[in-house]
Design a protein around this nucleic acid. Structure first.
Length: 492
RNA sequence: GGUCUCGUGGCCGAGAGGUUAGGCAAGGCUCUGCAAAAGCUUGUACAGCGGUUCGAAUCCGCUCGAGACCUCCA
């Protein structure tokens, strides 16, 4: 069905993508913990997987894309101690935990929509799947992979190691992991330092709690993804994605839970999106080194000189490969924006192309299109795809001088292909300079009067008048451009 | 401290044993009353030092530098 190859973090190599049940594809991506606003780094990860989702669909696959909302169980520390992140935020803001969840879930979805990310097929929540998680724990206990201690249940790495390796995904040996563990409060119930919580008994002040056979408590953070991916995608499915930072311990634990409970490690391809850095450092809420994706659209941030469109931001993100660290800066974003607008202008010119020249041109659209596919098939190499798009822009310019370059059919084929790559696959939104209908019409009418006055001034070589008009319009953000066929304008 | 990744021209970023990545910026040219825009065009870069090889930015070793994970974060 395709020649797509994907880099699998588990094997550490590029592998041809072969779905278990083509044309159906099951894809699970770890979603946000909704205890605060997402930052641009989170956004990059989700846009990377949006690109994959879009490309798989472009290839004709029927994708079931599951992306969870973590609304309980994610503690402040991965060592199974500390307060639940959401409960803590709720306490600090004197709100119900579910108010916190609602607020940041809505905010997250708004950001995703603003950046033109397609909604997942299913967006399940941890709290909506307590039953499934309890069932999975029961299975793990009955098979010996988990044990109860003082109302909590832990995954037994010791038992697991008798049958399966642990640490494959993150490339760690058991010795390394053991030497890296520390003695912490709340760990005394564990038989092995690497054991992790499947169920935690709630302390009296812990407000997010559910009944279970072991105690009134809450599920461990790693469990929800195993339970929900199994429920919606099966014991074996195609792709599991997430941010690079989730490799360990989250995804490592997920694999262990899945193998223990089902005998299968869940996904056949593990994909990890790399970090977005700001000032060379990882973007993180805890250090304040963050950028809110909404601020990019308003320009309100000390890191920004101006506002950007969502398309420009997406273009910037996809101009780097998803597995590379991408460093954010205002100037880098500006550079991407200029290129992006140049591409859009080129496509606009192609759409306006007069019907001239031969039917078929000298430039081979099909071959170019195949190169675009090749790039994306190579582990979603969007930067190379974009380079090809710029090649097309060059060709469009050449065709304007010599319409035998593209030819009429070639031109319409190229436009269709560019629309597909730009809008369907890269998820950029068509952005027109024009505003909404009636204002655009009024502006056009007014400008045609002004430009006519200026044209007469220029014809009589009254440069002071023509330049004054041009300067005055520039003050209002209207840039006048004089070309061989008269003057035109654009709004900045 | 342990594990791992990375270091590409002014900037951002692909690639990856031998052939131009691309974008932005910069220089030149075309167009032009001037400007802007647009188009064309130029630039031989791969941290340093060794090694393997006919040939390395690409493989190996060391050094320096940066980052990630191990400890909350996509």
């Amino acid at each position: 069905m395709s020649n797509l190859t994907l880099y699998d973090s588990l094997t550490g190599e590029l592998r041809p993508f072969e779905p278990i049940h083509a044309p159906n594809v099951g894809m699970y991506v770890c979603g946000p913990t909704v205890y605060s606003d997402v930052h641009l780094g989170n956004t990059r990860t989700f846009l990377s997987f949006d690109l994959l989702f879009r490309y798989l669909q472009h290839l004709g696959y029927k994708v079931r894309y599951v992306r969870n909302i973590t609304d309980a169980g994610h503690l402040e520390s991965d060592s199974d101690v500390g307060e639940d992140k959401i409960a803590k935020k709720a306490r600090l803001e004197q709100l119900e935990p579910m108010e916190i969840v609602q607020r940041y879930t809505v905010g997250f979805r708004a950001v995703m929509q603003a950046y033109n990310a397609l909604p997942p097929s299913i967006e399940p929540t941890a709290t909506g799947h307590i039953v499934e998680q309890i069932e999975m724990i029961k299975k793990l206990i009955s098979d010996g992979y988990a044990y109860e201690a003082n109302g909590s249940v832990y995954f037994s790495i010791g038992t697991y190691l008798q049958k399966y390796p642990y640490g494959e995904l993150s490339g760690r040996s058991i010795e390394d992991l053991e030497s890296g563990t520390r003695d912490l409060d709340g760990q005394q119930d564990k038989r092995h330092p690497l054991d992790f919580a499947l169920w935690k008994k709630a302390s009296p002040e812990h407000i997010m709690r559910w009944p279970s056979p072991w105690s009134e408590g809450f599920p461990g953070w790693h469990l929800e993804c195993s339970a929900m991916s199994t429920k919606y995608l099966g014991e074996e499915f195609d792709i599991h994605g997430g941010g690079m930072d989730l490799k360990f311990p989250h995804h490592e634990c997920e694999i262990a839970q899945n193998k223990g409970a089902t005998g299968h490690g869940g996904a056949r391809y593990w994909l990890h999106a790399n970090m977005l850095t700001l000032n060379g450092k990882r973007m993180a809420k805890s250090t304040g080194n963050t950028l809110d994706p909404r601020d990019l659209l308003t320009g309100e941030s000390p890191h920004l000189s101006k506002a950007y469109t969502p398309g420009a931001v997406r273009f910037f993100i996809h101009q780097a490969h998803y597995r590379s660290v991408l460093d954010f800066s205002d100037s880098a974003l500006q550079a991407a924006e200029k290129g992006y607008y140049r591409l859009l202008a080129s496509m606009e010119a192609l759409a306006q192309r007069p019907a001239q020249g031969p039917d078929r041109g000298t430039w081979n659209v099909a071959e170019w299109n195949a190169q675009c596919s090749d790039a994306m098939n190579q582990d979603l190499n969007s930067p190379v795809l974009i380079a090809h798009l710029f090649d097309a822009a060059k060709t469009i310019a050449a065709d304007q001088k010599d319409p035998s370059t593209l030819g009429q059919t070639g031109a319409s084929e190229l436009l269709a292909a560019m629309n597909t790559w730009m809008f369907d696959v890269l998820g950029l939104a068509p952005e027109h300079q024009s505003g909404s209908g009636k204002y655009q019409k009024a502006l056009d009418a007014a400008m045609s009067v002004v430009l006519d006055v200026r044209r007469k001034a220029r014809e009589s070589k009254d440069w002071s008048t023509s330049d004054a008009l041009r300067d005055a319009l520039a003050q209002g953000g209207i840039v006048v451009q004089d070309g061989p066929e008269g003057s035109s304008f654009r709004v900045e």
